[in-house]
Amino acid sequence: MPVDSTVTLKAQTKDRNGRTVAEVFAQDGTNAGLSLVQQGHAFAYRQYMNQCEEWAYMNREKLAKRYHVGVWRFDDGIEHPWEWRATNRAAPH
């Protein structure tokens, strides 16, 4: 999807900071989030998946992991961002 593409947002909910959580669709109907997860460029963010097709996101993440693409090119992938934040929130400075 080119940088200057027109997209459609399908708002799902708000996060704890009041930001809109949405799925992003290209003009041809392609779900940008699913594409990113399948290419290994994003994780299926489990906290908000109950508002969308959870099985599709989890399936795409499993495919990316199986074929070692993107973040999954490492044996066990990389640490999920939400796990990193939780660990570093608790760490003394």
Rank of each mutant, 00 (worst) to 15 (best):
M58V: 15
A32Q: 08
R46F: 02
Q47N: 11
G40C: 09
G70E: 08
H41K: 10
D75E: 12
H41E: 11
H41V: 00
Q38D: 12
T20D: 01
V71C: 03
V69H: 00
E79L: 11
Y57V: 02
A26R: 06
V69P: 00
Y45L: 12
R60Q: 11
P81S: 07
P81D: 07
A44C: 08
E79V: 14
W72Q: 00
G70P: 11
Q47H: 12
A26I: 04
W55I: 10
I78E: 06
Y48S: 13
E23I: 10
C52S: 11
E83S: 06
E23Q: 12
R73S: 14
E53L: 04
W55A: 14
K14L: 14
D75I: 07
A44Q: 08
A56R: 00
W84F: 10
E54T: 10
H41N: 12
C52T: 14
D76E: 13
D28E: 02
H41C: 06
Y57C: 09
Y57R: 03
A32D: 05
A22I: 07
E53H: 08
E23Y: 02
V69K: 02
Y67H: 10
A26W: 04
W82D: 15
G33I: 06
N59R: 10
R16N: 15
R16D: 15
N17V: 02
R46Q: 12
D75H: 06
E54H: 02
R60Y: 09
I78T: 13
A32G: 04
V24C: 03
T30E: 05
N50H: 10
M49K: 03
E53Y: 04
R46H: 11
E54R: 07
S35F: 06
N59T: 12
K65W: 04
Y45H: 13
A32R: 05
T20F: 03
C52E: 03
R19T: 07
Q27I: 09
T20N: 00
N50G: 10
K65T: 03
R46W: 00
V24R: 01
R85F: 00
D28A: 00
D28W: 02
F25K: 02
D28F: 02
G40F: 05
K65A: 13
H80Y: 07
H80C: 00
W55E: 14
R85T: 09
T30H: 01
Q39Y: 08
P81L: 03
A32E: 08
K62Y: 09
R46Y: 08
R85P: 13
Y48R: 04
Y57T: 10
N50W: 00
D76Q: 12
I78L: 06
E23F: 07
Y45A: 13
H80F: 09
V69E: 03
W72S: 08
A86V: 07
F43R: 04
L36W: 06
E83G: 01
W82F: 13
V21W: 02
A86K: 06
R60C: 06
R66G: 12
W72C: 04
R66W: 03
K14T: 15
G18R: 01
L36S: 15
Q51H: 14
R16Y: 14
V24N: 01
